[in-house]
Simulated scan of single mutants.
Amino acid sequence: MTNILLTGSSRGIGAAIAETLRNGGHHVVGHGTASGIAADFADPAAPDRLWDAALAQLDGRVDVLINNAGVFEAAPLDDADDAWLANWERTMQVNLTASAILCRRAVRHWHERGCGGRIVNVASRAAYRGDSPSHWHYAASKAGMVAMTKTIARGYAAQGILAFAICPGFTMTGMAEDYLASRGGDKLLADIPLGRVAAPDEVAEAARWLALDAPASMTGAVIDVNGASYVR
């Protein structure tokens, strides 16, 4: 049985990943306000507390870390300077810095145990194609996550530590219908050749495969799940 720490597991993509992995018989410790261990990643100390609590629940062994937690909050260009900067820093802290702290703890954990492990970081197609003018910070945080994943993959492959990223496009979570309506709905869907947004279980299957079955030679790979709305 694989021991897995999954952030942002209480809803949407995270909940689908948790269900998929648990159905496969794996031990998943989740993080979120509705389920799992509560930790507010806006607090710089929260990721370390989450890691320690998860390690206690997993009998001292984490095999896979999946970083899925994140925020998507608008920061319009015309916001007051302090509000714009505060939103930028909060998004970076929650989306990127918290993930980095957990990745660091995971790599050190595997070094101490003398074993390998896997990291799966859930980024976004925004890492490559950008996002709306009100979401510079979101796109930047996800691009940072992809760069971090590749750096970990290159740095630690020889120790059996593998790192992957997933870049979903729009995904049908609980808020997707309202969000699609606010962004033009039909026009937005017209930009997706598949003709629909992704389902959470599609992203979850990609995460499951990377966490458990992807060949080691794929380390550093980024998997797109966006209906061909952005291809590289």
Rank of each mutant, 00 (worst) to 15 (best):
M1Y: 11
M1E: 12
M1A: 13
I4P: 00
I4Q: 01
T7V: 07
G8H: 00
G8L: 01
R11W: 04
G12M: 02
I13F: 01
G14P: 04
G14N: 11
A15N: 06
A15S: 14
A16C: 10
A18F: 00
T20K: 15
T20R: 15
R22P: 09
G24Y: 11
G24T: 09
G24R: 15
H26Q: 09
V28G: 01
T33R: 15
G36S: 14
A39I: 12
A39D: 12
A39E: 13
D40E: 15
F41N: 02
A42V: 10
P44R: 12
A45D: 15
A45S: 15
A46C: 11
D48E: 15
R49L: 14
W51F: 12
A56T: 15
A56C: 10
Q57Y: 08
Q57S: 14
L58K: 12
D59C: 05
R61Q: 14
L65R: 08
G70N: 07
V71T: 15
A75E: 04
A75W: 01
P76Q: 07
L77T: 12
L77N: 04
A80H: 12
D82Y: 05
D82F: 04
D82I: 11
L85D: 09
W88K: 02
E89K: 11
V94R: 02
T97F: 09
A98F: 08
A98T: 08
I101F: 07
I101E: 07
I101P: 00
R105I: 03
A106Y: 05
V107D: 04
R108Q: 11
H109T: 06
W110A: 05
H111G: 08
R113E: 09
R118K: 08
N121H: 04
V122H: 00
A123P: 00
A123I: 01
S124W: 00
A126N: 07
Y128H: 11
R129H: 03
R129S: 08
D131P: 00
P133A: 06
S134K: 05
H135Y: 09
W136Y: 09
Y138C: 05
A140V: 12
K142Q: 08
K142I: 06
K142G: 04
A143S: 13
G144C: 07
K150C: 05
T151Y: 06
A153E: 06
R154H: 08
Y156D: 04
Y156A: 02
Q159A: 13
G160A: 07
G160M: 00
I161M: 08
I161L: 05
A163C: 07
A163G: 06
A163Y: 03
C167M: 04
P168I: 05
P168C: 05
F170G: 13
T171E: 02
M172S: 08
T173G: 14
G174P: 03
A176T: 09
A176S: 12
E177S: 13
L180P: 03
A181W: 07
S182F: 01
R183A: 06
G184N: 03
K187L: 08
L188C: 04
L189C: 10
D191H: 09
D201R: 10
E202T: 06
A204M: 11
A207H: 05
A207F: 03
A207N: 08
R208K: 14
P215K: 05
S217Q: 13
G220V: 03
A221H: 12
A221I: 06
A221C: 10
V222D: 06
V222F: 02
I223T: 13
D224C: 03
V225A: 06
V225C: 05
N226P: 04
G227D: 03
G227H: 02
A228T: 11
S229H: 02
Y230N: 10
V231R: 10
R232F: 12
